[in-house]
Design a protein around this nucleic acid. Structure first.
Length: 322
DNA sequence: GGCCATCAATTTACAACCTC
DNA sequence: GAGGTTGTAAATTGATGGCC
């Protein structure tokens, strides 16, 4: 019993994705999808010599035939793929006795911005991973341009992405655009990988762990300063020893952990004094100080004035500016 | 990262004072 | 007088920094 055709669901509407106006940005490149479909060439069918000014990637999901690339003939069979870059003359033939299926991805790829332009535009790295996406897109496009004019085995199952994209369209659910976009990107990446024996991924971003832990600790303190916080508790959150967290605070903030926490709490106390009529007892409770006594002591030490005097001064200043 | 001595931070208790 | 603020002192806790 023969295996069911993997791309059977696409037979219902094999040109469906061609009807979508699909274009998106990937790294510093704009990708416009011209064709993304499943087709079949009857036995003996020929697509005579032609070329494109865009990239065309051909995947063979079933059947057999041959392709002539730059004057050289290559046999095609299920599981192979080949790429025709802009200007590459090619001719495709189905076998005389057997039809050949083809999944075709035809894309126009445009470099959107130069390096300098990217740095000043919305493409500039913002710390949200754009630089890594740009690096991967750059690596992929660089390799796409250099691929040899020969078929390769679809080792990374790029052609399966056609079905993923098709089903995203068919299900018409939230996220279909993103799924289709990612499927196209995967096709490009896996196609390029099919020609590479060794791994050529870009080095993924490594964290500056010291800075990362400091940021995590600062965020945790900012979010929780109203509760009782200890050095040990925060250190536990960021999974380092309390001693190490002390060193990190000294290095990054140039203040100790408790000084940092106190600054955050006092800042909050100041805004409460300015914007509310709450008693010091209440403010102390809301800002993480264990008592109004202690808040009073800390506040005077830091500001040189008592909380109430600070509140009155602020009110006077506000009244005089009105 | 752990140990440890040191010391500053924090808590607690209490009292005086102020304001309504 | 009640409730809130300010100030002080003693006790306790835990942060710090040197050292390994």
């Amino acid at each position: 019993m023969s295996q069911p055709f993997y791309f059977e669901p696409m037979l219902e509407n094999p040109m469906a994705l061609d009807r979508l106006e699909l274009s998106f940005r990937w790294g510093a490149y704009g990708i416009r999808v011209l064709r993304c479909h499943l087709t079949s060439f009857p036995a003996g069918a020929v697509v005579d010599y032609h070329q494109h000014s865009e990239y065309e990637i051909h995947y063979i999901p079933c059947g057999k035939g041959r392709v002539i690339l730059e004057g050289v003939a290559h046999a095609l069979h299920e599981g192979l793929l080949y790429v025709t870059a802009p200007g590459v003359i090619h001719r495709q033939e189905a076998d005389d006795h057997e039809a050949m299926g083809e999944l075709c991805l035809h894309v126009d790829i445009v470099k959107l911005a130069g390096k300098e332009e990217a740095a000043s535009s919305s493409m500039s790295p913002t710390g949200w991973g754009e630089e890594w996406e740009m690096a991967e897109a750059e690596a992929c496009m660089g390799q796409l341009n250099k691929l040899p004019h020969v078929p390769a085995v679809d080792r990374h199952e790029a052609m399966k992405c056609f079905l993923v994209a098709y089903e995203a369209w068919q299900n018409n659910q939230l996220g279909q655009y993103t799924v289709i976009k990612q499927s196209i990107i995967q096709m490009l990446l896996r196609t390029v990988s099919a020609y590479n024996q060794e791994q050529q991924g870009v080095n993924l971003p490594a964290r500056d762990m010291k800075n990362y832990r400091y940021q995590m600790a600062v965020q945790f303190i900012t979010d929780n300063f109203r509760r009782p916080l200890t050095l040990e508790g925060v250190a536990e959150r960021v999974q380092i020893s309390s001693r190490q967290l002390q060193r990190i605070f000294k290095e990054k903030a140039n203040v100790s952990f408790s000084e940092f926490l106190e600054q955050i709490r006092l800042k909050f106390v100041c805004s409460e004094l300015q914007q509310t009529t709450l008693t010091l007892e209440k403010i102390a409770e809301r800002s993480g100080f264990t008592s109004s006594n202690y808040l009073h002591y800390v506040f005077k030490k830091a500001h040189g004035t008592t909380p109430n005097a600070y509140r009155e001064n602020t009110l006077l200043q506000n009244a005089s500016t009105m």
